[in-house]
Nucleic acid binder design. Structure first.
Lengths: 209, 209
DNA sequence: CCACAGCCTGACCAACCGGTCAAGAAAATT
DNA sequence: AATTTTCTTGACCGGTTGGTCAGGCTGTGG
């Protein structure tokens, strides 16, 4: 049952342990926040001595910063499908699909992001002011073009984006509440139904259907 | 400049100090979560010695539980306007209005609730399973009736409720992100515009307009 | 085979945590 | 005025925290 005990290469060791630590850290930070998380708990979950964590990530904040950064990258790439779409039905529909998939597959990442923003973003304020702001204004122009072309109703683009973020991330951040009301984890069919519901209501809400 | 130094009555002292502590605690819990918050920080913000906090609230968890409970009460009453409405335009419109007002006036409360749910609701699980579940199934029936009466499109009632919660609470929970993108706090006009946008998109999204 | 650089970790530390307590101050009751 | 009850607080406690470090271990290049 044990893994192959063949000696690992240097680069493999580093990659494997960093991945192990990051995975455990994401979960612990998501469930306890930065202040509530402890290096000891992360170490236990990763199956490593605490001192080994500090070898790869000198401080707790370094580890946290890395976790948030990784999430932000995934999160940004979700919009790629939106850009070359001919109109809102394809573009926003694909964006909702991508964001719902992320909520399902990376719920902890979404929670860490939420924790960080609620904490007034002490370590990602620069992301918000540079990358996210640039990303947002680009999508605002795209939506304004669709409106000008008569492909959707004249809604406020920024509030539409907030609604997209809020609705899709809610299924990750408030997953526990939803599962409680649902009396159990969401099945494949449940996720399909959730995604369809969100798509239908929003696309009709912006007059694209 | 000092307040009237007239002697306070016993009941006044208790009420005033509890209110002071709860207000400070709400803010600290909202910005740091349960684990990240410290009794010392809450005490400093309330302008009281730490030992005095433990006189009114024996443990940190007692204080936290009280904060969450107070929020939940406010939050539940927001739905009163929904019940006697003749249809979704008035009912859901009023609910959105009430929830947006709460997001503006009690942003910290909303954040504490979010923290708690993300933390897998260790102290409010009973609320979720009893009060919230009962509340939800009541509104689901109301929405189903409106659909049966042809007053709105046949959307899934539960996912509509999730969308209402997600969209309105987003303006509290992610307020910092929104303010950063907005390059400053939201004005009266900004809040009005936000509320109108949410109302319009959702009401059209459910086929009520 | 050797020497070096990267990896591992038990033991340790100062700082801080939630919570306690005894002794005093202030208000209410008699 | 005396007594009792409630409120206030500095000092303190055991336990936990993030972080350090010396010294052993191991893969790698010469």
């Amino acid at each position: 049952m044990t893994d192959t005990p063949r000696p690992l290469r240097r680069t493999e060791i580093r990659q494997q342990n960093e991945a192990l630590i990051l995975q455990a850290a994401e979960k612990v930070f998501a469930e306890a926040g930065f202040g509530g998380a402890t290096m000891q708990l992360i170490a236990d979950m990763a199956g490593l001595p605490k001192a080994n964590l500090h070898y790869y990530f000198p401080t707790k904040e370094d580890l946290y910063r890395r976790v948030v950064h990784d999430i932000f990258e995934i999160w940004l790439h979700a919009a790629d499908s939106m850009d070359q779409a001919p109109g809102p039905i394809e573009g926003i529909g694909a964006y909702i699909q991508a964001k719902m998939d992320i909520s399902r597959r990376h719920p902890n990442g979404s929670k860490v992001w939420a924790f960080e923003v609620m904490h007034r973003a002490p370590v990602i304020q620069d992301y918000l002011e540079t990358t996210l702001r640039a990303w947002t204004s680009g999508r605002v122009r795209l939506i304004e073009r669709w409106i000008a072309e008569g492909k959707m109703a004249p809604v406020d683009p920024e509030h539409l984006l907030y609604m997209l973020w809020a609705t899709t991330q809610h299924y990750a951040d408030f997953g526990h509440q939803i599962e409680t009301l649902n009396a159990g984890p969401l099945s494949d069919a449940d996720w399909q139904k959730a995604t369809d519901s969100v798509k239908t209501m929003i696309l009709r809400g912006i007059g694209a259907l």
